[in-house]
C-alpha cells in the first residue's frame, strides 16, 4: 500500500496516457457510445413490445416504467464498473510490450489498472454519470444515506472484482494467443448472467437465487436495485458478502495463474 502512494505520481502518468489514448480515437469512442446507448434503447423497445402484447400493467410485480429505468441505467453502470483491462494485457502480450512493462519499477497490474481508468474516464464523466443523474432526477428517486453507503461499497467492490476478472482473462492470452473473440463472448455471458438482457428478478425463483449467489449481479443489477430500493437490506448485504468472497477466491486464482503464466512468458522471451 505504501508503494502505491509513493508511486502515485507514476501511476497518474499511466492514467494520463490512457486518457490521451481514448481521446485520440474520438470517432471510435463516439461510435461505441452510440452503440451502447442504442443497445439500451433496443432492450427498452423489446420489453415495451412484451408488455403491450401481454396487456398487463406489471410482470412479476414490476411495471414497464421500471424496465425503462433499469435498461437506461444498466449500460452506464456497466461502463463504470467494467474497465476492459483484458484488452490492454492482450495487446501487451501480442506486441511484446509486456516484457518492457514488467521490468519497470512499478507494479504491472496497477499500471494496467490506472491506464484503463484513464481510457474509461471519458465514458464515465460524459455519459454514465450524467445519464444516471438525469434518470434519478426525472424519476424522483430518494436515495437515503444508508443506500448511498451501500452504493459506494457496491461500486468499489464491482470495480475490484471485474478488474481482477479482466486481468485473469487478459493473461490467458499467453496461452490462447488471440483473445478478440473469446473476450467478446465472455462479456456476453457476464452481461446475460448480470441481468443485462433480462433483469434477474424476472427469472424463476431457483435460477434467480443462483444468479444472486454469483458475483456477476454486481455488473449493474444490485446497484440499480439498491438505488430504486427494490431489494431488502439483507439481500444487499448477501450480495456484498458474495462479491467479497469472490474477490478473495479470484485474487488467489489470478495470482497462481499469473505466476505460472509469467514463467511461460519468460520461456517465450528467452
Amino acid at each position: 500500500m505504501l508503494n502505491l502512494f509513493k508511486n502515485l505520481r507514476l501511476y497518474f502518468a499511466y492514467f494520463y496516457i490512457g486518457l490521451k489514448n481514448s481521446i485520440s480515437y474520438k470517432t471510435d469512442v463516439l461510435l461505441i457510445l452510440i452503440f451502447r446507448l442504442a443497445t439500451s434503447l433496443i432492450m427498452i423497445l423489446i420489453w415495451t413490445a412484451i408488455y403491450l402484447n401481454s396487456n398487463v400493467q406489471k410482470i412479476n410485480g414490476f411495471s414497464l416504467s421500471f424496465i425503462y429505468i433499469y435498461m437506461f441505467m444498466f449500460m452506464p453502470i456497466v461502463t463504470i464498473v467494467s474497465l476492459n483491462l483484458y484488452n490492454l494485457i492482450s495487446q501487451d502480450i501480442k506486441n511484446g510490450g509486456i516484457a518492457i512493462n514488467m521490468i519497470r519499477s512499478v507494479n504491472y497490474s496497477l499500471q494496467l489498472f490506472f491506464s484503463s481508468i484513464g481510457e474509461n474516464i471519458i465514458y464515465v464523466l460524459f455519459v454514465s454519470l450524467p445519464l444516471i443523474a438525469i434518470i434519478l432526477f426525472f424519476v424522483h428517486v430518494d436515495i437515503g444515506f444508508i443506500s448511498l453507503v451501500f452504493l459506494a461499497i457496491e461500486f468499489i467492490l464491482a470495480i475490484i472484482f471485474f478488474s481482477i476478472f479482466d486481468f485473469l482473462i487478459g493473461i490467458s492470452s499467453i496461452y490462447l494467443v488471440d483473445l478478440s473473440g473469446l473476450s467478446q463472448m465472455i462479456y456476453n455471458i457476464i452481461y446475460f448472467l448480470g441481468g443485462g438482457i433480462i433483469p434477474i428478478i424476472f427469472f424463476p425463483t431457483q435460477i434467480k437465487n443462483i444468479l444472486m449467489l454469483l458475483p456477476f449481479q454486481m455488473l449493474g443489477f444490485t446497484e440499480i436495485a439498491t438505488m430504486l430500493n427494490i431489494i431488502s437490506t439483507h439481500t444487499i448485504l448477501t450480495s456484498i458478502a458474495v462479491t467479497i468472497f469472490s474477490i478473495f477466491i479470484l485474487f488467489i486464482a489470478t495470482t497462481v495463474f499469473w505466476r505460472k503464466a509469467v514463467k511461460k512468458l519468460s520461456s517465450i522471451g528467452g
Partner: peptide, 11 residues
Amino acid sequence: TVIYAISSGIN
C-alpha cells in the same frame, strides 16, 4: 423461455 414463461411474448 423466461420471456414466454412470464408474459405472452411478442405479438
